[in-house]
Structure formats: structure tokens, C-alpha cells
Design a protein around this nucleic acid. Structure first.
Lengths: 228, 228
DNA sequence: ATCCTCAGGATTTTCGAAAATCATTGACTC
DNA sequence: GAGTCAATGATTTTCGAAAATCCTGAGGAT
């Protein structure tokens, strides 16, 4: 038996899925952009079949949309959807955090502390932050939020939260004001963690809600400015 | 401009998606069954490409699962997943119902009453209930639950609820005790509707939770008997 | 007897081209 | 000039077969 975690007998379709999703998440494919097969085939260096499968998955998850016989395109962003996502995150991640606090053991506490440590150690960039660092922060930010709710004990709730987070991430990425909010977010993250580790469910959820509200407000201001 | 709702320039992939999903929902494809392409191509009378796209969508929604290079199969059922689904339904549909009661107008009330009327008018069958009637009841049952939460104002929450309902439906279908619970369910449905129309959010949500708990209990008893 | 190797067959996965559909252009009528 | 219609080009959608991978079981070595 192999000790290696993954012999990785992957498929091209999986590669295409991750590749295209990454392009959408990082904003290189922008909302509303049409996704032509010729282009995607060139990008992924494969035939049409695996690309099609990847787009089918992405569409089922809401990252792309499909008009029959008119092809796929990157899902649009809208102020109303941002508000909807925020409301759903408060509901689902709030409940997941409550459960996690109730059920989490020392292992969970350690994972939360570790994820938070990694998050605050990402070098703080400026406007001209290299995208590598920016991607790094985003990955650790996602990991921190995942660690918080990891002990909730509900795979379905975790899946829902994961999807919501990914969608919220798209909104965060398009916002130039992202960088300014990092410093504020740091204090908010710390507060959530402290309340969670103190096993104060109500206070932790309140802090989480406040965090989402503030994030949403920042993005809403940006969207209003853009007229989207 | 055409008045017809849909000229229906559909694709084979969409047909395959609905066809296969129906086979899974109605239980003709059973949990754990392997889904071979040769078989599905024969069933849908089409080539492998659209079938593959359909399975990709179904997998993203959790109805099927995929092992790389080992093919697709119908997702397994388990007691723990049933409990997880129930907990998530209480959370999500409960909130959706609360919002619906808060925001719903007369149009919403009318739709709820209409859906309930259709539901109770399905002829009550017995063990040997023809599958057509059974499918009819299931469709109207889904429509009633959808009508209750339709006015919640959150497309994302509605989507989540829809998925959860579809998964719960799979559990209900495999249960032989389904028929016995219809009569009980009728009283529960009426209670939910009455509380909702009376705009008593707390009572309506409580009734909804009780409804789900009772459904889950019935199914759990069945599952325990089967040793699944 | 147990384990390993390796064909043979079954199945999934991918390809490249054909068929179907949509968008655009330009001619033609009213 | 506005509107209709057909032909053309671009793009999606589907097909049928080739390539890659997995499963099974027989044969041989330890």
C-alpha cells in the first residue's frame, strides 16, 4: 500500500474544473464574460468533452450559467445577490459556528488557533500587492473560516457554507477596496476566535454576523460606486 | 414575439438529466447502483456525451457520486445523512417559512391554499397504490412545501431548500411505510398552513419542525429494521 | 497455501469531426 | 426608411470510435 496521499489518477475533466474555477475566482474571467469552448480548450490544452463536463459542474454550483445552444458564461454579480449571500451566510455559518462551539474538542481549538496564526502572518501588502500574496491571504482566510465551523458535525451544512463562502469570495475579489479592509478584518477575526475558544456561542455568532455585515457594507459601497 | 412560454429548443443533455434524476427519485435506480454508460445510453437513446454532462450535474447536486476512472453510481443512503438532512431542513426551511410569513402577500396566501387543496385531493391509495398516483402525490407534496416558503425573498435559500427536499424525498421513497404516514401528514400539513396563514411565525415553524421530526422518526424506524 | 504478475475483457475517458443551432449580414419588399 | 427573409459564418451540441484505465482471474514463484 502506498503512503503517498494521492496517486493522483486524476481526469482531465477534474483539471479543467479546477482551472476554470480558479480563473473565475481570481477574476481573470470576469462576470458576464462568455466562455467559448475554443478559448477554454486552448487554455486547458484538451478537447471539448472534458471542458464541457467541467462547465456542467460549475453551472450546477452557480459559478457559471448556461443558455441552451447559446453557450456558457460567467455568472453575473449583483447587489441583490450579495445581500442574499450575506443573509444566508449569517444563517448557515452562524448555526455551524454555534454547533462547532458546542461540539468542538481540543483538536478543533488547536486547528482554529493554527489557522488564525497563519492568517495574520501573511505579509500585509499594499495596492500593488503581488497577486501571489493576495492569493495566499485568500486561501488562508478561507481556511480560517473553515476551521471555525469544522466541528459542527454536519457535512451538509459544511457543504452549504463552503459554497456560500466561495460565492462571497467572488464579490470580495472584484472589489479594489479589499486591501483597506484587511486591517479591520484582522481585529474582527481575532474577536470571533476569542469568543469561540471561550465557548461563548452567542457572542461568537454575534461577532461573526458583525463581520459579515461589515464586509457586505464595504462591498455594497464599492458596487454602488460602480453602478452595478 | 411568441406568446408560448417555451419554444423548447432544449438539449439532449437536459433531457438526460431529468430522465436519470427521475429514475433515481422514483427509486428505479437504487442507492449504490452503478450507472453504466452503455445502459444509460440505451435508456435515453443518445450518445455518451450528453449522458456524461447529465451525470456531472447530478453529481454536483449530490444525487450521484463519481470515482475517477471507476464511473458513476447512485449516492448511498444512510441513517446519519437522513439525520443531517433533517437538521438542515429544520434550519433552512424553518427560516424560509418565517421570512415567507413576514413578507408574503395575499398572492402568497392564495398559492398556499391552492397547493394544499390539490394535495388533499389526491386519491388516497393503499399498499397497491398505482405508481402514477403515488408520483402525483409526491409532486403535489413538493409543490405545497415550495408554496409555503415561496415568499421568503431569498433565491439562494429557496435553492438550498429545494435540494434538501429532493434528497429527503429519496429517503421517503424507499420507505414502504410511506403510505401509512400519509394520513398523519395530512393533519400536520393543515396545521402548518393554518399557522402560516394566521401569520404566527413561531407556531408555524414549530409545526414545520414537528412535521420533519415525525417524518424522520418514521424513516429511521424503517432504516433500523432494514439494518442500513 | 499465499502472494505477485500480467494478459484479456469491460468500462470509462477523451478525441476530432459531423450535425444542429444561433447570430449577422445583406438583399428585397412594402 | 423600416421590416422581412434567406444565406452565411460562428458556436454549440452530439456522435462514433480510439485511447486510457480498471477489474478479473489464471498462472507461476516463494
Amino acid at each position: 500500500m502506498s503512503i503517498l496521499p494521492k496517486p493522483a489518477a486524476r481526469t482531465l475533466a477534474s483539471d479543467a474544473y479546477e482551472r476554470i474555477r480558479a480563473e473565475i475566482q481570481t477574476g481573470r474571467f470576469r462576470p458576464g464574460d462568455r466562455l467559448r469552448f475554443a478559448e477554454l480548450q486552448a487554455l486547458c490544452a484538451m478537447s471539448v468533452t472534458p471542458v464541457r463536463e467541467a462547465l456542467a459542474r460549475l453551472t450546477a454550483e452557480g459559478f457559471t450559467s448556461l443558455d441552451d445552444h447559446r453557450g456558457y458564461s460567467v455568472a453575473q454579480l449583483s447587489l441583490s445577490e450579495l445581500r442574499d449571500i450575506t443573509a444566508n451566510r449569517k444563517l448557515c455559518e452562524g448555526e455551524a459556528l454555534r454547533l462547532s462551539i458546542e461540539r468542538g474538542d481540543a483538536q478543533w481549538e488547536a486547528a482554529v488557533i493554527a489557522a488564525h496564526h497563519l492568517l495574520v502572518r501573511v505579509p500585509q501588502g499594499r495596492e500593488d500587492m503581488p497577486s501571489a500574496i493576495r492569493d495566499d491571504w485568500d486561501a488562508r482566510h478561507a481556511a480560517f473560516h473553515r476551521a471555525l465551523i469544522a466541528a459542527c458535525g454536519s457535512p451538509i451544512l459544511l457543504d452549504t457554507c463552503g459554497r456560500l463562502f466561495a460565492h462571497a469570495d467572488r464579490y470580495r475579489r472584484v472589489s479594489v477596496s479589499l486591501l483597506m479592509s484587511h486591517r479591520d478584518a484582522e481585529a474582527e477575526h481575532r474577536l470571533i476566535m476569542e469568543k469561540a475558544l471561550a465557548r461563548d456561542g452567542a457572542a461568537a455568532v454575534a461577532a461573526l454576523h458583525a463581520h459579515y455585515e461589515k464586509t457586505a457594507e464595504t462591498l455594497e459601497a464599492f458596487f454602488d460606486g460602480q453602478g452595478n
